[in-house]
């Protein structure tokens, strides 16, 4: 068989497999039930405007809060990992390894139930959410930021120091701005992950007006016995994450060009 013929045969086989899989699913599915479960127009109508004004807004607010706190803590951890002081390096490494290795779910449960019991205080819900999402996000962002700082050429620090700038100022006004440029794409990626992780905040125990998209969808699911709210919630998540993903690719292309 010639090379061209063989390539054509392989392609034909691939298309055939795809066709068969699609056919099997299409025949096996009960389309009437599917439509009733996921595309119930009446149920869908009832979700508005709350799904936007409460759930979507809360998802965005929680994510942004968690991201900002996580970014600040992540930067601190990254600097600690690069510190000359050995205990700082240990602490940062331990923190990062711990929070990267433990499911976010457990962290949320521990915070939601553990903190009020252990410290006898009830913290503002938004603060708890910020802490929970930030603590987890920081572990990932710290490693990203550390890599970014180390990717800034040594000559930059040398130039800054030879101009008489202190190590602190060289870090703040020369190295960190350049490091953030480098890590912008992975940080935007982390924002996508956090958006999805925000679906775990229901574990902290929330009132109705604090529901975010996932919890809102599940609540409506139980109420209406319909999967339509879940579909709607999913679409709203995509409305956030798809543009972010597009942003990540554009940032990556820009960084690639700048090199």
């Amino acid at each position: 068989m010639s090379r061209r013929n063989r390539a054509r045969a392989i392609r034909t086989a691939q298309y055939s497999v795809l066709l068969i899989v699609v056919l099997v699913f299409a025949l096996a599915a009960d389309w009437g039930e599917l439509r009733r479960a996921f595309f119930d127009v009446e149920v869908a109508k009832k979700q508005f405007p709350d799904v936007v004004t409460t759930a979507l807004v809360n998802t965005v607010v929680y994510t942004v809060l968690g991201f900002v706190f996580g970014l600040a803590l992540g930067l601190l951890l990254a600097l600690m990992r690069l510190s000359q002081v050995l205990p700082y390096r240990w602490l940062a490494t331990a923190y990062i390894e711990f929070f990267r290795g433990v499911p976010a779910l457990l962290v949320f449960i521990a915070l939601g139930y553990g903190v009020p019991v252990a410290f006898q205080v009830s913290i503002n819900q938004y603060v708890t959410v910020m802490l929970a999402l930030g603590l987890v996000g920081a572990a990932y962002m710290a490693e990203t930021i550390r890599a970014g700082i180390q990717a800034v050429p040594k000559g930059q620090t040398e130039a800054a120091r030879s101009l008489g700038m202190s190590p602190t100022w060289a870090m703040i006004s020369i190295v960190i701005p350049q490091a953030f440029r480098i890590v912008l794409p992975p940080l935007a990626n982390e924002l996508i992950l956090l958006t999805k992780d925000s679906s775990l905040v229901y574990l902290l125990g929330l009132s109705m007006d604090q529901y975010e998209l996932a919890k809102f969808g599940r609540d409506a699911l139980n109420q209406h016995r319909s999967l339509t709210p879940i579909l709607i919630a999913g679409l709203f998540y995509l409305a956030i994450t798809l543009p972010l993903g597009h942003l990540v690719r554009r940032l990556e292309a820009r960084t690639a060009k700048a090199r």
Binding site: A160, L163, G164, M165, S166, W169, S173, I174
Partner: peptide, 8 residues
């Protein structure tokens, strides 16, 4: 200007 401002 950066070093003039930050160092001087």
């Amino acid at each position: 200007t950066i070093a003039q401002r930050r160092a001087l």
